[in-house]
Amino acid sequence: MSCWETIADYGLRSLGIGERLLPRSDFTLCQQVTLIGSGMIWNIYFGTLALASGFLLATAVALGKAARNPWLRKPSEWFIFVFRGSPLFIQFFFAYFAFLSLKSAYPFFDPFTAAWLGATIVLFLNTAAYSGEIFHGAVLSVPKGDMEAADAYGFHGWSKFRRITWPTMLRLAWPAYTNEAIFLFHATALVFFSGFPARQQKGDALYYASYFADKTFNPFVPYPILAGYFILLTLTVIGLFGLANRRLNRHLPQTRRARLRIRPILVR
């Protein structure tokens, strides 16, 4: 069987398209690369969706935490504390079993026990809390002069936020936020190792990598392939966020622009 046939059979296996049975013996390198790559679809799906939706909530939470009104501030503080203070792994388990209990009472919650929705919700809340804290720090460090200048030009309310506070906050937070994005993509590898089951062996990249490692007793092939895919993904994220960073900083003199410093961390 040639490599092209393998790609045709297993390229979209993680979505349930193509060959039903996973290879069981005589594993070729091509099969491993194809299946693990196929699993990456899920990692990208979880990461992108959670990041895009989490961004909006994070802005709200950051402003809530910076608010003077305790009715806004306290819930935001607690939200950030709960999601940053506990392991994501336990959050996945808790959410899965909570959805399972809700499902037995209300059939409406049936899709929530599947990874595509349930895990996305957990990742969405989790990244919103982490980025909310980053944005909160950035809101506090918006230069005083910028705000005074905005007042002097007659900005207030929504237009002041939209045109002055928010872009400056994003500009200041962007390097840290890039790290958070990388970190979120890495965290997507946890999904199928926590409560959420992989139905019909439709899993993410780590799921297939550990499948091969278990079957071949040889961790030295599948895990480096996985690492390679993740490094590619990380570089893509850095590239895309770098473009955004350039745009956010385009009005500043060359020397004062914030450079992206990439410091990924490990587990959340």
């Binding site: 590898a189 946890l190 780590l206 550990s210 490692a213 961790p219 895990y223 490094i231 990924p264």
Partner: peptide, 19 residues
């Protein structure tokens, strides 16, 4: 160690060290 992503390391190291 800092460059390679998260839990893959944990799964990899346990088998690799054992072997």
């Amino acid at each position: 160690v800092r460059g390679v992503p998260d839990i893959a390391f944990f799964l990899f190291f346990v088998i690799a060290l054992d072997q």
